[in-house]
Design a binder for these strands. Structure first.
Lengths: 206, 206
DNA sequence: AGTTCTCCATACGCCACCGTACGGGAAGTC
DNA sequence: GACTTCCCGTACGGTGGCGTATGGAGAACT
């Protein structure tokens, strides 16, 4: 009789018990993702999250089998967000503009918008690994497609996409761990332009 | 009468008790650094390390005040290694060659030779923060000096050094978390050359 | 040979977190 | 208004790691 997993989307019906509303599975997943953004995978911990949500473990273990199930749900939510982002970016028709938009986002997007760095650090985790693998492949393929639009041959396009992605990873990690190193204020804009210039189509290639 | 901290270098004298030798403070620090290279800061844990060293906590708490003291010692050891590396690299007179050597090292140096990524992830830790700050500043300044030797004006040299350092951070993290993404075999060499080319002196700059 | 010092083993209490058992209150159902 | 179902509170046992207390074996000293 454990774990009803009550469709979870239909639950919009139930009016929540008087006074305090009742939590959904998604509420937990959202909170977990948020915690992971802020403090890494270790922050996905049942009891602390319960307190943060103003409830107890009792709620959690009704909605989820165990902690890994929560991590899974949080990452599914992240994948959905990531896909939505890529879809949004794809609506920019000019590929060069699209590239600039991505660079801009890497530097000034919301702090920890991307948990790729966290996932890379925890890539050994059995739940994390597959998610990381999938999203990363998608993103690099996406970047490669963009580069091909810019006129690069497929092989170079992929190399370049990989490089840009690694640069983004580096930026994200530095933003998280040593943000004071990044140029601030008006120097920030100049630096962004400089990086965009650097990530232009390669000049030479065998 | 706690914590003798017995000079620790003079202890080469004592012939070790018959049979099993006795551990030094440095043995602990070395093991801690090693563990951190492999599995991050969380792997610096007293009891697991004790088992790994074939001893018990009793040994540890004789040599160290607490876990943070061990982290400190491990990071001091890392700083020493880092300084030695930079000194070794500085012996390469041709700056371009020196740059290539560093890129080479970023890609094919021993796995986890650099724990910068780990420290960036744990930059909030009170012991980690200062070490990260110091070494990072040194390295970027070092790279900036190299770039000035290559003819860049100081401002650009620093920008470029920061960028190269972030790229190295990205590479290190990917090597740790998703090495399969990096080109393997003979493609690896081509890719390295391509990255070196990318990190050449910038073509344009305002 | 006795004493002192060095280094470690063991046992203990504490805390944080995981997962389970079980009970119970409130909403809906008949 | 009983009854069921949903959702949660609470208590419990287990695990892993931190730090302390204390004893004790061997080496070194005298």
């Amino acid at each position: 009789m454990r774990n009803g997993v009550p469709a979870d989307n239909v639950r919009t019906e139930r009016p929540a018990r008087t006074g305090r509303r009742t939590l959904s599975r998604d509420d937990w997943a959202r909170a977990a993702l948020e915690a992971m953004r802020e403090s890494g995978l270790g922050a996905i911990a049942v009891e602390p999250l319960a307190e943060r949500l103003g409830t107890t473990k009792g709620s959690f273990y009704w909605h989820f089998k165990d902690r890994d199930a929560l991590i899974h749900a949080a990452l599914e939510m992240w994948v959905a967000e990531s896909d939505a982002m890529m879809a949004a970016a794809a609506r920019i028709t000019d590929p060069a503009e699209r590239g600039r938009w991505l660079t801009e986002f890497a530097f000034t997007g919301p702090q920890g918008a991307d948990i790729t760095t966290t996932l890379l650090v925890n890539s050994q985790h059995p739940v994390v690994g597959p998610f990381l693998e999938r999203v990363t492949q998608e993103r690099i393929a996406w970047g490669a497609a963009l580069n091909e639009e810019l006129g690069m041959p497929p092989e170079v396009a992929r190399q370049h996409a990989l490089t840009a992605w690694m640069m983004a990873v580096g930026i994200a990690l530095v933003r998280r761990g040593a943000p004071q190193l990044l140029p601030q204020g008006d120097e920030a804009d100049a630096y962004k332009r400089y990086v965009m210039e650097l990530l232009r189509p390669p000049r030479a290639q065998a």
